[in-house]
Design a protein around this nucleic acid. Structure first.
Lengths: 143, 143
DNA sequence: GGTAATAGTTACCTTAGATAACTATATATT
DNA sequence: AATATATAGTTATCTAAGGTAACTATTACC
């Protein structure tokens, strides 16, 4: 699959630009959206959960969460393990999620135009598999 | 295809990290590699060509090219249009391309493990189609 | 009960990219 | 031909996003 990474990376800027534009009215960027998305889909979580999921360092997520707190889209409540803080969506956060979700799903649909259902599904399923393979490689390296 | 962008974006950090690590011995990063890759595959080109291809602003490419000149992987020669500078690979650049190409192709193969040939090909072909759709949207907006 | 590990934070640094304003050349308009 | 407009590329300055290292507080492990 020579050239796959190129095809993947070439898309990046275009996509980020479109997404950021779409969400700018909510003062969100794709990076903040990732946090909201994670919490919505995996339930209230810790910073470390999110950091692992996206393969991003902890301080990066700290910053994203603080920004989301300022915007009042999330709150942090102490976990039973007193080191942990559980991040969860506020009412406002839920609402913003729904609004953004609709817009993003629209964009996703537009962007898939001209692709067969099969192509869409396979691509959708393939990306996480690739992700897993990369994660496995990284794990095996640090052992 | 709700959630497609998430699947796409989640991969990003893992992939960039792996690629940068792989190329660090050549003092390259994925962003410099993109320029080398473009020139190798589309022939000697201008800054604007590259900038359009990756949907990135001109000054960003100016910097990448200057860095590659320092590393002596590319040279710029005046075009017949005297505004243009044609960027092309040096001997050293060609050599580095080959070495990196091998390593990256290896990584690409590893990362595709467990995926059928069909899944690989479809995903490979789908990404540029999505890219086209996004570009079309952006064009139609600015009209 | 003392040592390891884990969750989260802070301060500081790097990378990558954007915008605006500019120069120099080329193209189009009249 | 003279002027206006467009294009290629650069420079300076700013912002977004993320990383590293060092730290605190708490928990888990022997």
């Amino acid at each position: 699959m020579e050239g796959f990474f190129q095809n993947y990376l070439r898309l990046y800027r275009s996509l980020i630009t479109s997404l950021n534009e779409l969400m700018s009215i909510y003062q969100l960027s794709y990076s903040l959206w990732q946090v909201i998305f994670y919490i919505k889909n995996y339930g209230p979580s810790t910073l470390v959960d999110i950091s692992n999921y996206y393969n991003v360092e902890k301080p990066t997520i700290t910053r994203r969460v603080h920004r989301l707190e300022e915007l009042q889209f999330v709150v942090q409540i102490p976990g039973k393990d007193r080191r942990e803080k559980i991040i969860q969506l506020t009412e406002l956060g839920e609402q913003i999620y729904k609004e953004c979700r609709t817009k993003i799903t629209n964009l996703e649909t537009n962007v898939m135009e001209g692709l067969s259902k099969e192509e869409q599904i396979i691509t959708y399923q393939t990306l996480p598999k690739i992700q897993n393979n990369i994660m496995k490689r990284e794990d095996s390296k640090s052992e």
